[in-house]
Computed example of a mutant assay.
Amino acid sequence: MPNHIRVEILRMLRNKRYVIFVVAFPVVLYVLFCNIVAGQASSGGGGAAAYLMVSMGAYGALSASIMSTAVPWAQERQAGWLRQLQITPLPGWSIILTKLVSTLLLALPSLALVFVVAMTTQGVSLAPGRWALLFLGMWIGILPFAALGLAVGSLVPPDTAQPAAMIGMFGLAILGGLWFPVDTMPATMQTIAHALPSFSYADIGWNLVSGQAPPLQDVVTTLVWAVVLGAAAVFAYRRATARA
Rank of each mutant, 00 (worst) to 15 (best):
N3V: 13
H4K: 11
V7G: 09
I9F: 11
I9H: 10
L10G: 15
L10F: 12
R11F: 06
R11S: 12
M12L: 12
L13A: 01
Y18K: 12
Y18D: 09
I20T: 08
F21G: 14
P26A: 11
L29S: 02
V31H: 00
F33T: 00
C34A: 15
I36Y: 05
S43D: 14
G44I: 13
G45S: 09
A48W: 06
A48H: 00
Y51S: 14
L52S: 02
V54Q: 03
S55H: 13
M56L: 14
M56T: 08
G57Y: 08
M67S: 12
V71P: 07
W73L: 14
Q75W: 06
E76H: 08
R77W: 08
Q78I: 11
Q78M: 15
Q78S: 15
L82P: 00
R83G: 12
R83Q: 09
Q84R: 10
L85K: 08
I87K: 01
P89C: 08
S94T: 10
T98V: 09
L105Y: 03
L106A: 00
P109D: 07
S110H: 01
A112S: 06
A118C: 04
T120V: 10
Q122R: 12
V124H: 02
S125P: 09
G129P: 04
G129E: 07
A132T: 15
L136G: 06
L136W: 03
G141Q: 10
G141H: 10
I142F: 05
L143Y: 07
G149P: 13
A151M: 14
L155P: 01
P158Y: 02
Q162L: 15
A164L: 15
A165F: 01
A165I: 00
G168M: 11
G171K: 03
A173T: 09
L178G: 06
P186F: 00
A187M: 08
Q190L: 12
T191F: 08
I192R: 03
I192M: 04
I192F: 03
H194I: 04
A195F: 12
L196F: 07
P197E: 10
F199L: 13
Y201C: 12
G205Q: 06
W206T: 00
W206G: 00
W206H: 09
V209W: 03
G211L: 04
P214W: 07
P215T: 13
Q217I: 15
Q217H: 12
D218P: 07
G230S: 04
G230M: 04
A231Y: 08
A231S: 13
A232F: 01
A236G: 02
A236R: 03
R238S: 05
A244I: 10
